[in-house]
Computed example of a mutant assay.
Amino acid sequence: MTQPRGTAREVLAVFFRLGLTSFGGPVAHLGYFRNAFVVERTWLDESAYADLVALCQFLPGPASSQVGFAIGLTRAGVLGGLAAWVGFTLPSAALLTLFAAAEGALNGAAGQGLLHGLKLVAVAIVAQAVLGMARSLAPDPARAAIAALALMLTAVASGAPGQIAAIGLGAVAGLLVCDRPAASGGGLAAAPPSSRRAGLACLAAFVVLLALAFAPWANQTLAFLAAIVRSGALVFGGGHVVLPLLRAAVVAPGWVSESAFLAGYGAAQAVPGPLFTFAAFLGAVASAPPGGALGAALALVAIFLPGALVLMAALPFWRRLGPGRRARAAMAGVNAAVVGLLASALYDPVWTSAVRSPVDVALAVAGFSALVAWRTPPLVVVAALAAAGAATGIAR
């Protein structure tokens, strides 16, 4: 069992710099982490890093943030894990909370046009995500069929029940039609310090948290936070997959308007760090109390906590067992199903709420082409479409 070799302050400093500079989404974050911790600082070797990435991609939750949390655990224990999460998450969460405060003040033609431009950013970004995920997670006829069925199911049965059913059916279909060989090798080469007792305690906490998240709450604050927890606990694939889950969690009950939701999601593409910090924006603008900075902080903890608990529950056992063939087959089906979930969300609400005219179609297609064909950084696309939206708003 490895022992911590650094301090939480050291971990916080490195991850805070990454939180300020890590643009590009979860896959890019994993590249930044590898360069920072395997190549430059040698906090862990290539094999240990690959094992952590494999584990976090297998579990529900935000994969890149879970990898960062695990690296912090390896380096400086539990305080190191918390320092890694705070450092990587705080910059984008703070920026989105500030945007939430400003969003209500954007009432003029230019301001409303800017918000509409951010909705068009969401169209381009989600379309790019669907394309990339389909290529990697549904590349063969069996998994493409699972994705298509999940899309149809969520189109007919919208909301959280349809999404949960699609994920469950994806797992069953994966067991039946996906043949995924077990991973070679024997688990984590350098697991963070943990014990079976600690793992079981975290598993129990995760089960209790999930039970509370699915309980009916009369209190609006607790009901809102429970909905955020459900989203964080049910995401497989991380990143953009949280979009349809969060939309069902906060827009359908009326806590956040469709317009504000999509504008905030577009703004989230312009900030570095994990996409899950979008929850901070939602907590700040939600009609459920407390709102503002406190609401942002509570929503942020709520969406990240399930993934942290399930990671710490899995670490002591993954080191010895790793995932078997059947588990990998089920996960292949789940991953294919989430492609369908995201494709369904691309149409409704992303396309239906943002695209209102031929000019909107042109701008969305231009943004998508810039991302996919020309590899333009997302920040540039966000700025360009927001400016175009503001200009068209003034012109109208």
Rank of each mutant, 00 (worst) to 15 (best):
A157C: 12
S65C: 01
A157P: 05
A297T: 09
L59V: 01
R143S: 06
Q163L: 13
L342H: 11
A70R: 04
V208R: 12
L12H: 05
L245T: 07
A122M: 13
V123D: 11
D179P: 06
P4A: 00
S47W: 03
F317Y: 09
A388S: 15
W255V: 00
P274T: 03
V251T: 14
V27R: 10
R328Q: 11
A260D: 15
G68A: 08
S259E: 14
P192T: 00
C202I: 02
M312I: 01
V355G: 07
V123T: 09
A171M: 11
A293D: 09
T42E: 15
L131H: 13
Q112S: 10
S287I: 03
I167L: 13
P161G: 06
V250E: 13
G104M: 04
A296K: 12
V207S: 12
A314S: 14
L114C: 12
F368Y: 14
G291P: 14
V361E: 06
S257T: 15
L59F: 06
A142R: 15
A183Y: 05
P274D: 10
W255L: 00
F276Q: 11
A36C: 06
T392Q: 15
A83P: 14
G111N: 12
A226K: 13
L176H: 06
P316W: 01
A366Y: 06
A366I: 03
G187P: 08
V310K: 13
A313C: 04
C56N: 15
G104F: 01
A370K: 09
M312L: 08
I71Y: 00
M152G: 15
L114T: 07
A280D: 14
W351G: 03
V156R: 15
A279L: 02
G162P: 15
A384Q: 14
V285C: 04
G77M: 01
A373I: 05
Q128S: 13
L212Y: 07
P216N: 10
V14M: 00
T7Y: 00
V339Y: 02
A299S: 15
V39F: 04
A122L: 07
A297Y: 08
A144N: 09
L95R: 05
F224P: 13
F33W: 04
D51H: 02
A28E: 09
G117V: 03
A148C: 11
G87R: 01
T154I: 00
F278D: 08
L275E: 07
Q128H: 12
D348R: 11
A28N: 09
F88N: 04
A63W: 01
V121L: 03
